[in-house]
Write a protein that binds this DNA or RNA. Structure first.
Lengths: 192, 192
DNA sequence: TTGACAAGAGAGAACGTTCCGTCTCATTCT
DNA sequence: AGAATGAGACGGAACGTTCTCTCTTGTCAA
């Protein structure tokens, strides 16, 4: 079968992403990616010069996908609080999906603690963007201290994800929703 | 220099533990452990038959140490709520330590997602024990639904740890303390 | 007190495997 | 014709692990 270069790249990225996410990046060798993708060795290396590059691309595209999914999930939300709630609902839904292994971004920071690693940098950048997004929504919703609340929401969000992945349960998801709602109630003024 | 077998074992475990924790388990090879410990190859393998065994021993002893530290930190606590607060204070303190890399247990579950792996099992067991401990304290403190509160406290605790490690900040520590206090205030009856 | 002995430590070679990455070459599609 | 692909050999390094061999040390019988 013949694919365009772009299709090939995307296909490899999909396959590699699934493997990296489910088994862990370091546990997956390039040979496995190549074999699973059904692609020639040289084909992969033409698209991604090194494994680090592939890993970074995996995280970046995954985060892009996540933003797209968030945009869709928040499209119908009437206001900032509803958008935040949509984010949590989306995460809650992910956690109930079989094969859930937590936040890919956090897993990468755990596997690549070296701050100089490009994948680590991409992970940190993503988390920062999410926090900024939360803070903006909170400000718009009338929070007097949006940065503080955003940080706390992120603690709740990530804590539930890690726990759900580690314990293979989704009860942390329920706890997450309740904690977030409680925090929003305490911080946000009642809608007019 | 000559050491007893027990001393050697402990020494290897200390060295391996530092390396595993700071760089990640999979990123550290046995040669590095052997070299850093200044020990002969055969000496290590006489104490730990495989790397998996070493990793599992690392996690188990680390968790034992953690319980010991918790016991010390809670020794002077006048009641169950103070004991819980001591746990959070201890974690808060760890997070401010240079070289902090998050919860070793969670890092292991992230690096070894395979549920059959003994280190993974040890990690899950530890998290379960902590949750049970929290639940017991809460029940003693008069919480009407201690399991639920314990689950939420764990979400807060682990979320802050992961975030602090990923972002190399300790502000999640402050958020953690505040969230925990707020939750305890809401759940626990005022002391008589 | 001496001396033999077992246990364990040290040094390091070597094994087979896996890893990442390079390369060649025939084939296939446009 | 030309560019990209599949198949796969290949190299060098790192991996986990086994092995041999020497040397030190503590123990215990003679």
């Amino acid at each position: 079968m013949r694919r365009s270069a772009e299709e090939t790249r995307r296909h490899i990225l999909d396959v590699a992403g699934d493997l990296f996410y489910s088994r862990g990046v370091r546990a997956v060798g390039m040979d496995l990616v190549i074999g699973t993708a059904g692609v020639a060795n040289a084909t992969l290396y033409r698209q991604f010069a090194t494994k680090d590059e592939l890993v970074t691309a995996y995280l970046v595209t995954r985060n892009e996908d996540w933003w797209r999914r968030l945009r869709e999930a928040t499209a119908a939300a009437p206001g900032p609080r509803a958008r935040i709630e949509a984010l949590f609902a989306l995460t809650r839904q992910d956690m109930a999906t079989p094969g859930y292994r937590g936040c890919a971004t956090l897993n990468v920071t755990s596997e690549f603690p070296d701050e100089g690693h490009p994948a680590h940098a991409a992970a940190v950048a993503h988390k920062t963007e999410v926090q900024t997004w939360l803070s903006e929504q909170l400000r718009e919703a009338g929070d007097a201290n949006p940065d503080d609340t955003a940080g706390k929401l992120l603690v709740i969000l990530d804590g539930a994800q890690v726990l759900a992945a580690a314990m293979a349960t989704d009860t942390p998801g329920d706890h997450m929703i309740q904690l977030a709602e409680q925090l929003l109630d305490a911080r946000l003024p009642a809608p007019a």
